[in-house]
């Protein structure tokens, strides 16, 4: 089963080492991890996508992460009505002959072209992981040179922030 955890941590040196160290030591199966600053200067939010066997394993992940001194709060937002997004930048081969086909695909996916040159272009897309996967599959026909993805981030709908969940 896949779960999404919003982990609020103190923005101190070494905090990512502690988190990644714990994940590898306990052999937790992490799908994605994305960290960035928040509305509070001294707080970092890490969205962790985790794949576990059952609720007991999830409880272990949450309890073990909670023990880290710099972890302030963990909210399981899997079952909360939430918006989940990932950003991808994809560099695709594009020449005079197929460029307009590419533009069509990009439009269908409501993606953006953010760089063009004679041989390639870079597509930017944000959305749920499945949407990005789908675009990547279509673009394979054109020849993908490079993909970079941020890993998913998530926020709940409605007024309650993760720190108050």
């Amino acid at each position: 089963m896949k779960y999404t955890l919003a982990v609020l941590v103190e923005n101190r040196p070494g905090v990512l080492t502690h988190i990644s160290g714990l994940i590898s030591r306990r052999a937790f199966n992490i799908e994605s991890i994305a960290a960035g600053p928040t509305e509070e200067v001294d707080t970092t939010r890490i969205t962790i996508g985790v794949e576990v066997e059952d609720e007991f394993e999830l409880e272990q992940v949450v309890n073990q992460l909670s023990k880290l001194v710099n972890v302030i709060k963990i909210a399981n937002i899997t079952y909360v009505d939430s918006i989940q997004r990932e950003l991808a930048l994809i560099k695709v081969r594009a020449n005079k002959a197929n460029r307009s086909d590419l533009v069509d695909v990009v439009e269908i996916f409501r993606a953006k072209i953010v760089d063009v040159n004679r041989e390639t272009l870079v597509v930017e897309l944000s959305g749920e992981e499945s949407k990005i996967d789908a675009l990547c599959e279509v673009l394979t026909d054109f020849g993908i040179l490079e993909i970079v993805r941020t890993g998913r981030i998530a926020i709940s709908r409605g007024p309650v922030p993760a720190k108050d969940m």
Partner: peptide
């Protein structure tokens, strides 16, 4: 030593 002892300490500081 902080990196080395991360998995075997309750917490550590540099």
């Amino acid at each position: 030593i902080c990196g080395i002892t991360t998995p075997i300490t309750k917490h550590n500081y540099l």
